[in-house]
Amino acid sequence: MKSVLSLQVALFVVIVAALAFLPVFASPYGLTLMIGMLGYVTLATAWALFSGPTRYVSLATVAFFGIGAYTVAVFSESMAYPLLLLVSAAIGLLVASVVGFATLRLAGVYFVIFTFGLAELIRQLVTWYEVNMTGTLGRYIFLPVTPEGIYWQLLGLAAITFAISWGVGRSRIGLALKVIGDDEVVAAHCGINVARVKLALFAVSSTIITLVGAIQAPRWTYVEPVIAFNPTVSFLTLIMALLGGANRLTGPLLGAVPLFLLFEWLSANFPNHYSIILGLLFIAIVFILPRGVLAFAEENWKRWRRHEVKTVPGVAE
């Protein structure tokens, strides 16, 4: 067991190190693609950190992503860059704590609707503030951050997110999340402080999502509420995590990579029908692979193995 573990850690370090050298070889377009992909891998993994085991389906992803991006836009001229990221993370954490405290009592579809409403509410608030207080709608972001710099930061954040997700999955709190996902009443009777566990993980997940928005913001140079708080981000994150399987460490990654590439290709080639295709895909995934590709593959593997055993003569059932 120990050696399997160190092998996994070694593999992880090698992959991250290899990815760190990618900007040396990649074209500018390749780098742009990698930034987008890393962003979604991180979003989907962070989303699944909370929503996977607890089954609280959140559509607030873009609320936090947008908060990160907007914080950077608002303070880009008054703060040093590292401080900008810290302030974004702090605001994300604060909003997540307040929102989590108020809403994690909601169950099922009410939580889904609330989180969707939250993202819209924040977008409207920011728009109202910009129009009435600053008299503009959009903001320019001038920051001396190179695409390579953004890539490396996202890679670091992705690596940290994976490490957190891995650690949580093996720890007591990971079990607590699964118990909560199965039955909150039983969870509480086992001694789990259900509200505190949910709040803690929602806050961690949301803070990571905020940081993705903050790190990616300088790529845009110009932001408006409609861009920063685009609900498609929430839906894409959700569908990526679901496709790969939100209950496994690498599930969101396996969903995010192909879907990101597919969406890039679709939006380049079918800009007018993009959202229709997206909707159809969403429906197809939920119907065909409700528990994700990994679970699907595993079940079929087991079935196949069972079949193998049965066909060996002399083996009793």
């Binding site: 079990l175 607590a176 199965d182 039955d183 009443v185 039983v186 086992c190 001694g191 789990i192």
Partner: peptide, 19 residues
Amino acid sequence: RGLPSLTVAENVIASLAFG
């Protein structure tokens, strides 16, 4: 009230780990 997504042993560990 079982915890269906866990194994039988994990169902018991749930109360050992947080009790």
